[in-house]
Amino acid sequence: MKKVGIIDSGVEVAFLREQALRLAGAASFTLDLDSGELETRIYDADELEAWRQGTCALEVEDTHGHGTAVLSLLHAHARPWPDVELYVARIFGHQVHASSLCLVEALDWMLDDVGVDLLNLSLGTTEDGMEAPMREVIDRAVARGAVIVCSAGALPTLPARLPSVMAVGDLELMDRVAGKGVKVDHVVSERTVRIYMGGAWHEAPMTTSYACAVTAGGLLRGG
């Protein structure tokens, strides 16, 4: 059975209920800007099922919507949904912004502790300070056979610029980065997508984040 992971803003429990999806594991990573301390919460399948049934609240609920939109695309483009274990790591809150330290810790958890086979990273950072630990954990995972799909950026970003990551772009991005030396390994040609966000389905313009999830879903469908 394959293990599939998403690092993003969590997931709306309403989407899990609607699609009859269950999480095999989840975690949240939060950096206290005043103390500089990283807070990590890891949840097992039983805790997550209680949350899905509405008997408790956990720090993986998506208060922004981006992570849910990403999961909805991966789910839609992998149909028929295969027999997989699904894992979610929440590093974003109300705004899609997080410390690179949270990202590295989430990568460690997803790739080393959980050992996912396919990881969706609809995100990126221009901060170079965490490149070495990020590269180390990603290269180690790819060496054992994991596939890591990441959004390309308008500038060379991490982790997309790492050789071992599949960097994904959309047509608009390709127009913007022509001749700028941005690494793009795969381009999604669709201009719009249908996403689940904020408790409902919406038509939305294609972005690199969404293109990443579309690509990951296709890889999952193809085995």
Rank of each mutant, 00 (worst) to 15 (best):
M1C: 14
K3G: 01
V4G: 01
G5C: 05
V11R: 00
A14L: 10
R17E: 04
E18K: 06
Q19E: 12
L21C: 13
A24Y: 08
A24E: 10
G25I: 03
A26G: 12
A27S: 09
S28C: 15
F29L: 08
L31H: 08
D32I: 10
D34T: 12
E37R: 03
L38E: 09
E39V: 14
E39M: 07
R41L: 04
Y43A: 06
D46F: 05
E47S: 09
L48G: 07
L48W: 01
E49A: 07
A50D: 02
A50I: 01
W51M: 13
R52V: 00
G54R: 15
G54Y: 07
T55G: 10
T55E: 07
T55I: 09
C56S: 15
C56M: 13
A57K: 11
L58P: 00
E59R: 07
V60W: 00
T63L: 06
T63V: 08
H64I: 01
H64N: 06
H66M: 07
G67T: 02
T68F: 03
L73M: 13
A78N: 10
P80S: 06
W81M: 14
D83S: 11
L86G: 07
L86N: 04
Y87T: 15
V88I: 13
A89C: 12
A89I: 15
R90P: 06
R90G: 05
I91D: 00
H94W: 13
Q95V: 14
Q95I: 15
Q95K: 09
A98Y: 03
A98F: 00
A98N: 09
S100H: 09
S100Y: 05
V104F: 01
E105A: 11
D108P: 04
D112V: 14
V114D: 02
V114P: 05
G115C: 08
D117R: 06
L121M: 00
L121K: 02
L121I: 00
G124E: 05
G124K: 01
T125E: 04
G129V: 15
E131Y: 08
M134Y: 13
M134A: 09
E136N: 11
E136R: 12
R140H: 04
R140F: 04
A141L: 00
A143H: 03
R144H: 06
G145I: 14
A146R: 10
V147Y: 02
I148S: 12
I148L: 09
S151V: 13
S151D: 15
A152V: 12
A154Y: 07
P159I: 02
S164D: 12
S164F: 13
V165N: 14
V165D: 08
V168R: 01
G169H: 05
L171S: 05
L171C: 12
E172F: 05
M174Q: 13
D175Y: 15
D175H: 06
V177L: 02
G179W: 12
K180V: 11
D185K: 01
V188L: 08
E190I: 14
R191C: 02
M197I: 08
M197R: 12
G198R: 03
A200L: 08
H202Y: 14
E203H: 10
A204M: 13
A204Q: 12
P205D: 12
M206W: 15
T207S: 09
T208A: 10
A211N: 03
A211L: 03
C212Y: 00
A213D: 00
V214Q: 02
L220R: 05
R221P: 01
